[in-house]
Design a protein around this nucleic acid. Structure first.
Lengths: 169, 169
DNA sequence: CTTTGTTTTCAATCATTTTTGAAATATCAA
DNA sequence: TTGATATTTCAAAAATGATTGAAAACAAAG
């Protein structure tokens, strides 16, 4: 396998993985491309490499910028925009986790909270079972949320350090 | 909000959340329905509640069984199959993590390993940069993989206990 | 201003995924 | 066996999601 083939395979694999996690395949491929690029790339560079339209590049780059995974950079004396991705794997993980927490975990906690406060016959076993389900789920979500907060603030050794501490048990 | 409205809202919310994580919306709704059901449900029960076809129920129930989240149960003297979901939130989390690890994390580690062994000019900065990216990503993936292994074996207090230990720092 | 190069938007199109529903298959009881 | 009930399969249809591309908006330079 040559370097170019390897790069292509990485972009493909990353795209497929993204798709399994509810991320637009093109967005994941674009992220992979920028991740392994040693220089910031222009819209044209991306269009050529991934064989996609200008509009598609624009949409997905914007989304990656929203996630904090990509920055727009300007080369002096050039009019075009160039795009550069975060290269530190640990920082990437934190950005993704932070964003999913904000977009998904926090809202679900709000919903679970509401669902725990319904009216009804408080003696009914149906009622009790439902409230109980919601409360266990909310408890789990809050613990997860708190752990994620810590993880976001922690440094790169958190996961490794944690793994080592688990090994000792 | 009445109990029935709350149940419907929970099913809807859970379905939407699943969709964002690359899980078929109907599968997530079905899981939600079985999760809050106090009794195992039949195919008809599910068809009625979620307003979906028999074939759709069958497909998604099979998938949930594959994930280990649902079991088929037989009521004595009844010919129909009934379906029952795991109710313990911690066990559910472990089943999902275990499955995604097997289906996604382990394969990507294999790919990253291959991509780290390409031929080419070992002096070229392009070559070095790519190998380095793959190696950092592989290292991260393996650490994650090891942590997930521990998590799967750990008990319900792992997350809570870990959270508390982080708080002390 | 006006020109030129660049980015953004978005309705229409295309591709993929999901769902249906009826036929085929399986299972049980008489 | 046979008939009755239940489950599974899968091709076709429907729904959803992604992509295009050309026009509009924007921005810098002359």
């Amino acid at each position: 396998m040559t370097l170019d083939e390897a790069k292509a395979k990485f972009i493909q694999t990353w795209g497929g993985l993204g798709a399994q996690w509810g991320i637009n395949k093109t967005m994941a491929q674009l992220h992979a491309l920028l991740f392994i690029a040693s220089e910031p790339l222009s819209t044209e560079d991306i269009m050529d490499t991934l064989q996609i339209s200008r509009g598609n590049v624009n949409m997905n780059v914007r989304e990656l910028i929203d996630w904090g995974l990509v920055q727009r950079v300007n080369k002096t004396g050039e009019r075009k925009d160039y795009y550069n991705a975060e290269k530190d794997v640990w920082k990437i993980a934190k950005l993704i986790v932070r964003e999913r927490k904000k977009r998904e975990l926090e809202p679900i906690i709000g919903v679970l909270d509401d669902l725990g406060k319904i009216e009804g016959d408080k003696e009914s076993s149906d009622y009790i079972a439902f409230i109980d389900s919601m409360s266990r789920l909310k408890n789990f979500s809050e613990t997860l949320n708190n752990s994620v907060d810590k993880m976001i603030k922690a440094d790169e050794n958190w996961l490794t350090g944690f793994f080592i501490s688990m090994l000792k048990k």
